[in-house]
Design a binder for these strands. Structure first.
Lengths: 342, 342
DNA sequence: CTGAAAGCGCTTACAG
DNA sequence: CTGAAAGCGCTTACAG
């Protein structure tokens, strides 16, 4: 069977406690004793049983990360950063995919994993507009994205409205006059989520420039995938008076839109300028390179992990907090053209 | 504190055993008793302590997946599929990123997670050419990709050599005569890995068509990222007699190559045809759409999970097995051009 | 169909 | 600086 602390203790001729002290790197163990224990540890190839440790300590060193799906580059990149930030604390990350389904998000948020995990970082989609009931028994939680309407929960987010406004303003500053938006959603769940905030930023920018919102320029999308962007762009190009610029609520939508524009033989940005949101790697190599808004992703991941650590340490002794990370407007070829090129 | 089985038992006025029976859905509990227990479970909002269960049973229901990085779409997509396949068995997946470093891969393979996990699915990069020492104490392991040179290990892989050969042959069938390859690596670690196998397929296809391998057409790359592909393509275009086609060992390299070609104002496929490997989502929307080889990714994930389940159940009672999944050649615009378009 | 009790492997007061 | 013992919350023979 597995090698236990006890077996090591027997070989090293010390008590179990002493072995535990060595394993956990406590001081106050005589060098000589420590050496003997170390030797036994190596000889038997001892590996601690994390379940036992976790049962005893009430902490597992494992946190969960729940994202809609790893298939979307933004979430994959985010997951990678979270795993890395967690590793720096010696934590392990367990990944759940919610597919953006309210039931799955709720299940995860209310402790799907029992006492296996010490905390949860949740990137909600559907749940953002929903009251999230939480009890003190529930697992410590940090939300990625906007604050849930209901009870107070820790969260880290970019200022979606300001970022969306910056993206739209960039298009207007370029002299574009019919600026469309791809990313509107009208389902109840989405009402207070990312879609609603970016929409607000878009509309605010238009208003500030003295433009009205033209409903025909804001097609609804069922999702935020490349295919959704491609279809929405098609619809927009079918308009009697099509747009000369488009703000897409994420890069995937924008990449889909670029694809449709290429299929129609339209030039970007000459005929239609395009800007996305997220700054995923794909957009840096797309043809043309995609202008976008870059949230401080590394900060999001590390801030979320830090915040969770703090929440775990202090449970309900401290009020819910909010961290706003910054963003950068990153203009590239899809709005500026190939400047500096022949 | 946390609600225990004991607390539920007290409320329901039954023994702990009976509550356990209800929680674990065993038959042979009187309906009346079951109902009373259920009510108590709900009333106290009981959640089993997975650490305790795992300590007792010797199984945790958690497996680990170790990939180089989630930043690469292929691995992100794979991770998503594995998480999904695992969920169907009621398993949870914990993600490790090795960054392709030999030490990290080795650490993970030899049981980094102690007894926390029931098994491991490892997608090795560096380790493929390295002898992997394994003991019976080590965690059950399934490898994604080619078999390690050393001891017998379960693995699931696509026939890399045949797939690479098919991709190269596709280029030759199109009438291309100077077919380059981007993806060669000469480090010792990579010698028997994916790079070596795809290289072999490429060279075999050339040989079958009566071509010699032209060393200037097979630049080495430090990694398999878009930036590596872009740089290698640049080097290739600097040649006195540049290639008229390129087989890239993965889609990311190919996407990088496309970007460089666009920067130089070259037409794809007219001037240079490009084919990749992996069939990641990006390539379906790139401009031009990327021809590629599509390994049966869903199969890879589900076969790996199935195989791991079997290995966990039977440990060392059964010999190491190998599963070969199929692949499809997927020609798109980057080799065929915009057929059917005006 | 149900109960009382042991034990999974660890850590942690409590003594010494 | 080290040891003996309790107990984390669960499941599982063993009885009844």
């Amino acid at each position: 069977m597995a090698v236990r602390l006890q077996d090591v203790a027997a070989i090293a001729e010390v008590s179990v406690k002493t072995v535990s002290n060595v394993v956990n790197d406590y001081r106050h163990v005589r060098p000589e004793t420590r050496a003997r224990v170390q030797a036994a540890l190596v000889e038997l190839d001892y590996r601690p049983n994390l379940s036992a440790r976790s049962l005893r300590q009430g902490r597992s060193g494992v946190i969960a990360l729940a994202v809609p799906t790893l298939d979307m580059p933004y979430f994959a990149e985010l997951a990678g950063s979270v795993v890395e930030a967690a590793a720096q604390r010696g934590w392990t990350v367990l990944v759940d995919q919610t597919d953006g389904l309210p039931d799955r998000e709720r299940a995860v948020a209310t402790g799907l994993r029992g006492h296996l995990i010490d905390g949860l970082i949740l990137s909600p989609v559907a749940l953002e507009g929903v009251e999230l009931q939480r009890t003190q028994e529930d697992v410590p939680l940090v939300l990625l994205g906007e604050k849930i309407a209901g009870g107070p929960v820790d969260h880290v987010a970019v200022d979606n409205e300001a970022a969306a406004r910056a993206a739209t303003t960039h298009l207007l500053d370029l002299g574009r006059r019919r600026v469309a938006a791809i990313g509107y959603q009208s389902s109840a769940d989405a009402a207070s989520g990312v879609a609603a905030l970016r929409r607000r930023g878009y509309e605010a920018a238009l208003a500030a420039a003295g433009h009205d919102v033209d409903a025909s320029l804001t097609p609804e999308v069922p999702g935020y995938l490349r295919s959704d962007g491609a279809e929405a762009m098609s619809a927009l190009l079918g308009l009697p008076w099509p747009p000369d610029a488009v703000f897409c609520f994420n890069d995937l939508l924008a990449l889909g839109a670029l694809r449709t524009l290429a299929d129609r033989g339209l030039r970007v940005p000459d005929d239609v300028a395009v800007i996305g949101f997220d700054d995923v790697e794909d957009g840096r190599y797309s043809v043309p390179r995609l202008s976008t808004v870059a949230p401080a992703k590394e900060s999001i991941a590390s801030d979320a992990v830090d915040m969770l650590a703090d929440r775990i340490a202090r449970r309900d002794q401290v009020a819910a907090r909010e961290i706003r990370v910054g963003f950068d407007l990153v203009p590239r070829e899809s709005t500026l053209g190939r400047t500096g090129q022949p």
